[in-house]
Every structure is written in structure tokens, then in C-alpha cells.
């Protein structure tokens, strides 16, 4: 990996960590808005469960050995969040902002995964140059 790619990856890792991290305080303290959202999609204790998973993703994203695992977990959680917005929560007002942040995090995690694709289990073995289609 070139130095530029490494730096880019770290920038997007930090972005994802900041976006997910700043919502943790609301989730763990049981902020009324957060509770309302999770009540609306009928997820009892959802704020704690999702909070713990997001915390894990943040930690994994910051440890050099586990970045791709953190990015995968982050991408999965954000996909779930976006499904929530599409199906039940909608995009009105503050909801729209939250939905856009989820999309931003998903994109960041995917960029990290793309840059570090050679570290991803189940994929790294087949990503040597000679194995990809040539036009």
C-alpha cells in the first residue's frame, strides 16, 4: 500500500469513527430523541445493542490489525440504519440529517474496505494482479 492510500484510508476511518462515536453519548444516556427513534422501529434495548456494536466498530477501526473488520461491521450497521430510514423513519428534518450521516459513514467504510481489500479475509487470497479480469 502506498503512503497516499494509507493516509486516505486513515482519514476515512477517522471520519467514520467520529460520526459513529458522537452518537454514542445519546444512545448510552438514553436521550429522548434516540429512544423515540428506536421505539418507532420497535427495537427494545436497540439503543444499547446498536451502541455497543458501534463502539466495537470504532475500536476495531482504530487498531491497525483489525481495521477491515471494523469497516465491515460499520458498513453492516449503517446498511441497517439506511434500511430503517427507507422503510420506517423517513427523511424529514433531523431524520434526514441522521440518514445522510449514515450514508456518509457507509461510504467511508466502503472506501476503507476498498483501499485495504488485500487485508479482507475471503477476498485477499484472490486479489493478486494475475487473478483479476483483464479487458
Amino acid at each position: 500500500m502506498t503512503k497516499a492510500a494509507k493516509t486516505t484510508s486513515w482519514v476515512f476511518q477517522i471520519i467514520a469513527v467520529i460520526i459513529m462515536g458522537q452518537t454514542l453519548a445519546f444512545k448510552f444516556s438514553g436521550h429522548p430523541t434516540t429512544l423515540a427513534i428506536f421505539e418507532e422501529i420497535n427495537m427494545p434495548y436497540g439503543h444499547i445493542i446498536i451502541g455497543v456494536l458501534e463502539l466495537a466498530a470504532c475500536i476495531l477501526l482504530l487498531m491497525p490489525q483489525s481495521i477491515v473488520y471494523g469497516a465491515t461491521l460499520g458498513a453492516g450497521l449503517m446498511t441497517g440504519a439506511i434500511i430503517g430510514h427507507i422503510t420506517e423513519l423517513g427523511w424529514e428534518g433531523e431524520r434526514g440529517q441522521l440518514g445522510l450521516l449514515a450514508i456518509a459513514t457507509l461510504v467511508s467504510c466502503n472506501i476503507v474496505l476498498f483501499i485495504r481489500r488485500k487485508d479482507i479475509p475471503l477476498i485477499k487470497g484472490i486479489l493478486s494482479e494475475s487473478n483479476l479480469p483483464k479487458d
Binding site: 420497535n42 427495537m43 436497540g46 453492516g76 441497517g80 434500511i83 430503517g84 422503510t87
Partner: peptide, 18 residues
């Protein structure tokens, strides 16, 4: 199932999407 039964089914939705 996530839509009609419980949002928790979306954990499986996301896993199978991936």
C-alpha cells in the same frame, strides 16, 4: 420479516446482502 415482524430481522438482511 424485518418490515412486518421485527426490525431485528434486518441483522440477517444485512448479513445475507453482504
Amino acid at each position: 420479516a424485518g418490515l412486518k415482524l421485527s426490525f431485528y430481522y434486518h441483522f440477517l438482511t444485512v448479513s445475507f446482502l453482504f
